[in-house]
Design a protein around this nucleic acid. Sequence first.
DNA 1: CTGCTCATGTAATCGGTTACATGATTGT
DNA 2: ACAATCATGTAACCGATTACATGAGCAG
Lengths: 184, 184
Amino acid sequence: MALSHAILVTLLDRPHSGYEISKRFDKTVGFFWRARKQQIYSELHKLAEDGLISAEIIEQIERPNRIVYSITADGRKALDHWVREPTPYPSVKEELLVKLFSLGDVETAVLVDQVGQRLAEHRERLAYFHALMKTHYPKPATLTGRKLGHYLGLRCGVLNEESGIAWCTEALGLLETRRRPAAR
Amino acid sequence: MALSHAILVTLLDRPHSGYEISKRFDKTVGFFWRARKQQIYSELHKLAEDGLISAEIIEQIERPNRIVYSITADGRKALDHWVREPTPYPSVKEELLVKLFSLGDVETAVLVDQVGQRLAEHRERLAYFHALMKTHYPKPATLTGRKLGHYLGLRCGVLNEESGIAWCTEALGLLETRRRPAAR
DNA sequence: CTGCTCATGTAATCGGTTACATGATTGT
DNA sequence: ACAATCATGTAACCGATTACATGAGCAG
């Protein structure tokens, strides 16, 4: 019961088609709320049924027709209500840490590889976030409204990746010393 | 397809009943892999059916009987195989950041409250993690095997909470200046 | 007498993923 | 020729949550 809200929030900006929302989720919102296109389409149907969004079919020549959705007054009300509700602590599902619990029964080298792989992913994401920062938010102190919200999301991403990099580095250090117990 | 692995990893340590696993998930593993007891019980049935764990009924007087599960050789093989597979980047579901996207359409004070609440949660968790650190892992440099894995999990928790606190503090700072645009 | 701990489950539902389907246009 | 982009969906399945069920013993 929350992808619907991610969609409503996106529609605050301007009306979108399902396809556009799906594309947008691959960038901005998608970094802290991933969704498949199928789920977006089905969620849009539900939201339209509940009257939280309205649909308008845009006929196109030599292109499939688009269905553009806008948030309704009811949708805004529902969103406002949701924002005021207590926010659950994000449900964590960290496979990598579960894997580390098998240390001692699985070859350490395998775990070292896994952590190394994660480190590379963190670095890649961080670089991407930094690039977005530079092009979109050069002066964060001047931001207001929705733009500030987007900036804070990105900033959270940056801090999380940095923290992830710090952890991976530390973990690799400890694991390496275990791999060669008495090197020399 | 991963709660099963969290259970298998737990059984590496020693045999557990469903109830014990459920309790244990509330502490250690549960910080990066939460699961309801119902799900644990049904997962245990599946694992036993697949022969990855074996069940033994312990009859108890004046207490409900316990079913204690142990990991089998097949279970160890399956676990080893899973650990070697590429680890997907954790699926993020951060409602708080989605809520921040509504900045400009929802009262800023509401968002300030939400971030403040999250900050308190981060601090609480960090304090708990620090306490666990002190009592269980006073000398991390000497840890080996499974113990090291557990330590690294906790360490990841500490870093994440610290990063969360840093973000909340920054966010509150930026939000506060917006709330009173020209204080003075 | 209220609520907690021990101990295991069923049933319904919801949210999310994977696979499958269609079909024209544009770029390499 | 082949892949990618635009554009929308259905169906099957899996994983997770919520509600409901049972029942004894013990502490406040």
